Amino acid sequence: MEERDIRELLSINTTLPDVAPEHVHSTAQCLETPQGTGLWILDVLIGAIALVGLGENTIVLWLLRFRLPSTAFSVYILNLAAADALLLLCMVLNSVLLRVCTIPHDESLFKFMDLGKFFPYITGMSFLSAISTERCLSTLYPVWYRCCRPRRTSAAVCALLWALNFLLTVTEGLCCGLHTRGDSSKVCRPLDVIIMVWLAFLLFVLCGSSLTLLVRVQCVSLHAQPPRLYVIILFVVLVFLLCGQPLGICDGLLRLEAISKEKMTPYVKRACILLSCVNSSANPVIYFFVGSGRQKLRSRRSLKLVLQRALEEEPEIEGGRDIQLLETEQ
Rank of each mutant, 00 (worst) to 15 (best):
G244L: 00
I286Y: 01
Y230G: 15
M1C: 12
I195C: 05
F204N: 09
L115D: 04
E329K: 10
L202K: 05
P142L: 07
C176N: 02
L45H: 07
V19N: 07
A28Q: 08
P284S: 02
Q330E: 14
Q218T: 12
Y141G: 08
G248Q: 10
P315I: 03
V215A: 15
S302N: 09
A310T: 00
G36K: 04
L88P: 02
R294I: 12
E172A: 09
T14V: 09
D43F: 09
V96G: 12
S132Y: 04
P227D: 05
L311K: 03
E107T: 09
E3W: 12
G320Q: 07
T139Y: 12
R270A: 15
P226L: 05
L115W: 00
L140S: 12
C188V: 02
F235A: 15
R189V: 08
L93W: 07
L168R: 03
Q29E: 12
E329Q: 11
C207Q: 08
P104W: 04
V170Y: 01
Q225G: 07
N283R: 15
H223Y: 13
G252A: 04
R4D: 14
D84N: 15
R99Y: 03
R135H: 11
P34E: 10
N94G: 10
L242R: 10
L326K: 09
L325G: 10
D43I: 06
S70Y: 02
L137D: 06
K261W: 14
Y141I: 10
T139K: 11
L164I: 03
C147R: 13
C158V: 08
R67I: 03
S184Q: 11
K117P: 00
L115P: 07
I122V: 04
V92S: 07
A155Q: 10
W198P: 00
R255V: 06
H105G: 08
C188L: 03
E257L: 08
P226H: 04
A48D: 08
M1A: 14
G53P: 07
R270K: 15
F240S: 01
N94K: 11
L211T: 09
Q308T: 08
N283G: 06
V60E: 01
E172I: 09
F118R: 01
A159P: 05
A72M: 05
L88G: 00
L206F: 01
Q245V: 12
L305P: 05
L167K: 02
V52H: 06
C219N: 15
I286C: 01
T133F: 12
V268K: 10
L88S: 01
S74Q: 05
R300W: 15
G124L: 00
S280H: 06
L274N: 07
C250H: 14
T212F: 05
N283C: 14
F127W: 01
L98C: 12
G320N: 06
L234F: 01
Q324G: 09
L54D: 06
L78D: 08
N165W: 00
G116I: 01
H23R: 14
N283W: 09
I317H: 06
E327C: 06
S132T: 08
G173P: 08
A48G: 08
K269V: 11
A28S: 09
I77S: 02
I249Y: 13
I273E: 13
S154M: 04
I103F: 05
L202W: 01
L307Q: 04
T71H: 02
